[in-house]
Amino acid sequence: MATLTYTSREQIEVHRFSALATIGIPLLAIFFQAYVSSRVSFLKLFDLPLLVTIFFAVSRRNQLAGMLTGCSIGLVQDALTHLPIGIYGISKTIAGYAASSIGVKVDVDNPGSRFLMMFCFTLLHDGIYFIVSRHLLGIPADWRMLHELGSALANAIVAVPLFALMDRAKQR
């Protein structure tokens, strides 16, 4: 009888990434977000670093890896703002943890589930960001429901082709 291991389950594939992809893709996403949105302002509606966090978290299906990925990307993103370092860090750490936890149980390669997952995780991420910034740090911030829903929808739409593109960086 073949030994069943965590990685041998047919339904759940654990993917690995090269060091270049692990470091390069998040940095590219943050760079793109910071540079291009200075030219095309509506790109601020998207959160490419969050997309990358969710992608790596659900692909690796490891909660610790998901946390660390989210933490690192969030802290770098924080450093580019004028706000205290750690708001995005906390939000993305939790989002990474949740995404990797979901990834163990749900088929995350299906475009429909990717769309739904990204929509929900964007709302979760933005909700945590709002709570931390408004209630923990007292930074003036408003919860704009329509804006948040629009942002979640935009991220979900972009996630489907972008995840398919990043699938090419997977190593099995």
Binding site: Q33, A34, L80
Partner: peptide, 15 residues
């Protein structure tokens, strides 16, 4: 010259 932003509308900063 503007060379970048924070990338988010939660922090409206320019570089």
């Amino acid at each position: 010259q503007v060379i970048g932003t924070s990338g988010t509308d939660r922090s409206r900063v320019l570089y």
